[in-house]
Design a protein around this nucleic acid. Structure first.
Ligand code: SF4
Ligand code: SF4
Lengths: 158, 158
DNA sequence: GCAAAGCGGACTAAAACAGTCCTGTTTACG
DNA sequence: CGTAAACAGGACTGTTTTAGTCCGCTTTGC
């Protein structure tokens, strides 16, 4: 089953939610909106932050906002932020690992072509593409009543 | 670390080795040639066999040969044979799984575009492409002296 | 008939992942 | 200036996947 990490998938959900406005949102808020558990949201946000995909505002009333415009964030960026380098095999040029056969393997480097093709495919699609006609989030938040009083107050924009 | 299964990688090595001639080879032989442990080779061959990528010949002097021409075997084929369907997310069209957010997730289906792009990239590269100027295998077999007496005798071709 | 080889599937150890938690730092605001 | 909200960083743990092995059965050439 060739697939992306579940956390990567979630990261995309979070980013898409955040793409709906440029206000700063707390992890709590985003968690409620998406249904993804709070600690998990926090963890993912940290990864995204390090990669610069989101900006953080610390302190009371703080939270996260997109680090750059949706059209400048590619799926490849998200994967790399959460999972690390995209390297289909241990011997790929983008990898830092090594395989046990590496010394004698005649396939050495042959995967690079595939690797590049996949990366190109992942770089083609941006957050903006995926955000197209996504209306609002699901059938409304989860349980707890809308908890955005605090954050709404200091929404920097709009 | 976005990567393919190690077994998939090995599968490619095996197929590439087999692409060098149309004779039937035993798993033992292929194992010696590639340095991949015998039981592992056997396991991979079974997967490849089910997918039709290799043909098997049972009984004494039996073994495996490619199931079709190298140009007709794509990287996507190999991945699917070993790992199962290529479905980047649980909600992808090619997936048979389901995710916990699926009901309320507005991203639903948005990954299909990415999924298709990746599959296309993987389908573009064939075994023939990867086999280009691969001379012989490594610095010679492993330890044990060349053990191909038996199989060489009944090589159907060439 | 015997031995070589594949077939199917069960099993286990090791690694990766998903999720949680805790301790510390920054910052708004009363 | 104290308090509480919120992020930062990292350790930890239970679960799931993966990689690798093994065994008993079937097929087939000699
Ligand atoms: S050296 Fe060969 S076996 Fe090892 S990762 Fe590269 S292609 Fe795969
Ligand atoms: S429904 Fe949403 S969270 Fe679930 S797999 Fe699809 S995109 Fe990911």
């Amino acid at each position: 089953m060739f697939k992306v990490n579940k956390l990567t998938d979630y990261a995309m959900v979070l980013l898409l939610e955040m793409a709906r406005g440029s206000t700063v949102r707390s992890t709590q808020h985003v968690s409620d909106r998406t249904g993804i558990p709070l600690p998990t949201v926090a963890k993912i946000m940290k990864s995204l932050g390090k990669a610069g995909l989101v900006q953080s505002q610390r302190g009371a009333g703080g939270g996260y906002a997109l680090g750059r415009r949706p059209i400048e964030i590619t799926v490849a960026d998200v994967i790399q932020a959460v999972e690390g380098p995209i390297a289909l095999t241990a011997c790929a040029e983008t990898s830092d690992e090594h395989c046990s056969i590496e010394a004698v393997c005649p396939v050495q480097g042959k995967w690079n072509r595939v690797n590049r093709a996949v990366r190109a495919a992942l770089t083609e699609v941006t957050l903006a593409d995926m955000a197209e006609d996504i209306p609002t989030f699901g059938p409304a938040p989860r349980a707890k009543e809308e908890p955005r009083a605090a954050t709404a107050l200091l929404a920097p924009v709009k």
